[in-house]
């Protein structure tokens, strides 16, 4: 009887069997799973070191069953650089939010990419500072109301949302840069492929790989889970188009 049972879905080995602190409808859980799946499928769990950033993703070590270093706010790519230079054969990834990566950590991400550090960066863009209570992020959309843009983000005074996948694609050190989202099954599957690719590149010492994931934050957006999920495609994608902005593995093989 037992031999007729086939497991079709299970917890990735790279995740711990624990309940997360994430809010209902938050996409971090899905994205954690995609990363863990990629580590499992590529057989990397035992050689992987994750770099946790500051924000909702700081508790990476509570959820991933891997070695983790917690970095100061924005500095994860620099910490990853230090780790990778000591253990060049390990797999090192950072997992950062938009405030962390695209505001306070702008210098670190640009220079890690520009050096072509052999690391993978997972960038979760939910257009707000989740952990601190919904303040304006560098990716906050024009007119979006946050706790520090109570009248909506004003481009004239607050600046423009920053498009990191496009920006990093411009750097010679970047091997792979893509933007994906996880707001529906098909897109989750696409995102899974992008995340896996970003780890494959590192496994093959192919250079710096970056995946931006558009994500929902129902709590700080003040939306229901369903509404928040819909906002990702309805409002975010027009400003942050999905796509692969650079892929040196493709041009290298001539495909």
């Amino acid at each position: 009887m037992a031999e007729s049972v086939t497991t079709v879905f299970e917890r990735p080995r790279s995740l711990k069997p624990v309940v997360s602190h994430f809010c209902a409808g938050c996409h971090h859980g899905t994205i954690h799973r995609l990363v863990a799946d990629a580590l499992d499928q590529l057989g990397l769990q035992d050689q992987t070191i994750g770099i946790a950033s500051v924000g909702c993703s700081v508790l990476l070590y509570e959820y991933f069953d891997i070695d983790v270093v917690e970095a100061p706010h924005g500095r994860a790519p620099a910490v990853a650089t230090g780790v990778k230079r000591v253990h060049p054969h390990s797999t090192v990834f950072t997992y950062q939010g938009d405030g962390d990566l695209a505001a306070i950590g702008t210098a670190e991400i640009i220079h890690a990419a520009n050096r072509g550090e052999q690391i993978t960066v997972i960038f979760v863009n939910n257009t707000t500072y989740g952990m601190t209570g919904g303040q304006m992020a560098p990716t906050t959309l024009p007119q979006q109301v946050t706790t520090t843009t109570p009248f909506g983000r004003q481009i004239e005074t607050d600046g423009n949302p920053i498009r990191m996948a496009e920006l990093l694609a411009l750097l010679d050190g970047t091997s792979y840069s893509a933007r994906v989202s996880v707001d529906g099954p098909k897109r989750v599957a696409q995102a899974a492929r992008a995340v896996q690719k970003a780890f494959e590149i590192q496994k093959n010492r192919g250079g710096f790989a970056f995946v931006e994931v558009l994500a929902a934050c129902p709590t700080n957006w003040g939306l229901s889970v369903i509404e928040a999920n819909e906002r990702v495609s309805q409002e975010m994608m027009s400003y942050f188009p999905l796509g692969t902005y650079k892929d040196l593995t493709v041009s290298a093989t001539g495909a």
Binding site: A71, P72, A78, V79, G82, V83, R85, V86, E108
Partner: peptide
């Protein structure tokens, strides 16, 4: 922070 990473390693 690179020092932090290398030390952690």
């Amino acid at each position: 922070n690179m020092v932090l990473g290398a030390s952690a390693a």
